[in-house]
Nucleic acid binder design. Structure first.
Length: 262
DNA sequence: GAGCTGATGGTCT
DNA sequence: GACCATCAGCTCG
């Protein structure tokens, strides 16, 4: 994967002003940037709006949690799930529609050291510090929660605009292609124009249409027949498909008819 | 390698 | 109080 072949031109807001299932396959091969880390997307899932997609957070209408999804397109909807993970979406369609694309996996194309640091456990777990086990580079952003960690996306980034306004001027001194990493710094040279703390989606290198596959979405319990998961066939960073598995009853719910008295 | 399971807390019914 | 757009660590083969 040559960094030099990825276009650094930012995608306009109009790119996201379409139905999520049209935006999703077009996002494959694009580059999502937040701070010093950039990820070339290899797997995404589309989610529809209220009443039309039972698997979507917005299916039952607007709530404080999903309000960002009802906002203007091109913004990040970051939510917390399973008590410990964040996942990131890109909002589609004009205000009020409530649809988005979940970014599920990608390849780190800039900020590799930063991503490795974020993804290596150690500090914060059991009070341990020091380097944890090494995460293979292909696994750094393989899965929606891992991708969010690699990009440093947290609750506070919910609602962040991912459209890089004024980017042409920022890119002026560049060739239009992504630069390689500096020697000492892990920051790619083309990132210097991106305002600190902001996000952007760049053109990157769109996936070959012939390599795009689609199928049922991962881990959702409803609308299994909707093939709105899209990925680049054969890419090693695509996350393994997992069908939804009903959660087991908690052990506290002692099975009826079997008293623990004995 | 595949398969299973505990952890963990916000959200919604 | 159940569910959840998940992950890492473990066992087993």
């Amino acid at each position: 994967m040559g960094l030099g072949q990825l276009s650094a031109a930012p995608l306009p807001r109009s790119f996201f002003d379409r139905p999520s299932h049209e935006v999703a396959p077009d996002l494959l091969g694009r580059v999502l940037v937040h701070g010093p880390v950039a990820v070339r997307l290899t797997e995404v899932e589309a989610y529809g709006g209220p009443g039309e997609d039972p698997a979507a957070h917005t299916y039952r209408g607007r709530t404080p949690r999903n309000a960002v999804m009802f906002g203007p397109p091109g913004h990040l909807y970051v939510y917390f799930t399973y008590g410990m993970h964040f996942c990131a979406n890109l909002v589609c369609l004009p205000e009020g529609h409530g649809s988005a694309v979940l970014v599920r996996a990608g390849e780190i194309v800039a900020g590799l050291d930063e991503a490795r640091t974020r993804r290596s456990p150690g500090i914060g777990r059991d009070g341990r510090d020091g380097p944890g086990r090494r995460v293979p580079d292909r696994d750094l952003a393989r899965g929606p929660a891992r991708l969010a960690v690699a990009l440093g996306l947290l609750r506070e980034h919910n609602g962040l605009d991912a459209i890089w306004e004024g980017a042409p001027a920022a890119l002026d001194p560049l060739t239009g292609n992504l630069g390689r990493h500096g020697h000492g710094s892990d920051h790619a040279t083309w990132l210097t124009g991106l305002p600190h703390g902001s996000a952007a989606v760049l053109e990157g290198r769109p996936a070959d249409p012939g390599a795009i596959r689609s199928g049922p979405r991962t881990g959702v319990s409803t609308a299994k027949e909707t093939p709105w998961r899209f990925w680049i066939d054969g890419d090693p960073t695509v996350s393994p498909y997992r069908a939804h598995v009903p959660r087991r009853r908690s052990s506290a719910a002692t099975s009826v008819g079997e008293t623990p008295s004995s």
